[in-house]
């Protein structure tokens, strides 16, 4: 029983990583329709920004975290305002935008290697955050617990923002019917900038976690983002709650299934389940039929 509980706790940690990445992607893709694969690049950059703030500038962790979230949000918005708008203003299709985004991701991942070397940049000031706590016999590091708490707060804020504020309702309107929204005076550009900023702030949180846990490293984001995208599709494109449930499933599957399934089969099985699911229900768990 102890092992089940320990795997469950590790599952919660991994689920939170997918939850945050998927929520960020869902906010961006659900509204703009852009397949923003550079989401993985923002994930990586966030870790390095935190590294620069904490290690190079010596700022305390709380100030660094807040600053790094803001910087990540700005970076996300900048990617939209510069690269994506340049593509779209020249009538580039969403496919061209996707390829451009993939190109940007390569530039980010390799640029970081050129600047920081391929070695992971480990935090020296974060040693105390690697301390292990026991939750009813299951070991959890301070960083993991911190990410879970910050993640839950961020997701609650996101839920409230999307459902209870005027800006959130405008985003929903723009995602369901962009043309009509423009007619009633909603600026799509402004909405899109907000979505990119929110999405990038969300993906920054697991980015920080990975950096603090095993060192800031480039190239680690793509696989996580692809699985998170799968969670978004499984949950239903515009359904935050759907993406959350699917992310929880993926995170838990990776940890709990290790009892019965060899690790090298896990990813194939997840994709196989995904294929079956979208054949049975192409709109996802909570997606409305078109």
């Amino acid at each position: 029983m102890e092992i089940l509980w320990q795997l469950f706790i590790q599952g919660v940690v991994l689920s939170m990583v997918y939850l945050l990445i998927a929520s960020g992607f869902s906010v961006i893709y659900g509204t703009t329709g852009h397949f923003h694969i550079s989401h993985a690049g923002v994930f990586t950059l966030a870790g390095y920004v935190l590294y620069l703030l904490m290690e190079s500038m010596g700022l305390p962790i709380w100030i660094s975290l807040i600053l790094a979230i803001v910087i990540s949000a700005i970076l996300g918005a900048l990617i939209y305002l510069t690269l994506y708008r340049a593509v779209l203003s020249r009538n580039g299709t969403h496919l061209v935008l996707f390829i451009a985004s993939l190109g940007l991701l390569t530039v980010i991942d390799n640029g970081i290697v050129a600047i920081f070397s391929p070695d992971p940049q480990t935090f020296t000031t974060s040693v105390e955050f690697n301390k292990v706590l026991m939750i009813l016999g299951a070991p959890v590091t301070v960083i993991q617990l911190g990410m879970i708490i910050i993640g839950i707060v961020a997701l609650l804020l996101l839920y409230v923002f999307m459902n209870r504020t005027k800006a959130g309702r405008m985003i929903k309107a723009a995602s369901v019917n962009p043309d009509l929204s423009q007619i009633v005076g909603i600026s799509l550009k402004k909405i899109h900038v907000i979505c990119y900023a929110i999405g990038s702030a969300l993906v920054a949180i697991p980015g920080f976690y990975f950096a603090l846990d095993t060192g800031a490293n480039s190239g680690k984001g793509v696989e996580l983002v692809i699985l998170a995208v799968m969670a978004v599709i499984m949950g239903g494109i515009r359904s935050l709650v759907g993406a959350w449930i699917a992310s929880l499933f993926i995170g838990m599957f990776y940890n709990m299934s290790i009892l019965w399934i060899p690790p090298h089969w896990q990813t194939s099985i997840i994709f196989f389940l995904f294929l079956i699911m979208i054949m049975v229900r192409p709109t996802g768990l909570f997606g409305q039929r078109a």
């Binding site: 092992i3 320990q6 795997l7 991994l14 095993t214 940890n255 290790i258 009892l259 690790p263 090298h264």
Partner: peptide, 20 residues
């Protein structure tokens, strides 16, 4: 035994199983 991919960063699941 438990395997992992080259370049992986999270080994906690296979290690939890090993520990058990």
């Amino acid at each position: 035994s438990g395997s992992h991919k080259f370049g992986e960063t999270n080994f906690r699941a296979i290690l939890t199983k090993a520990k058990a």
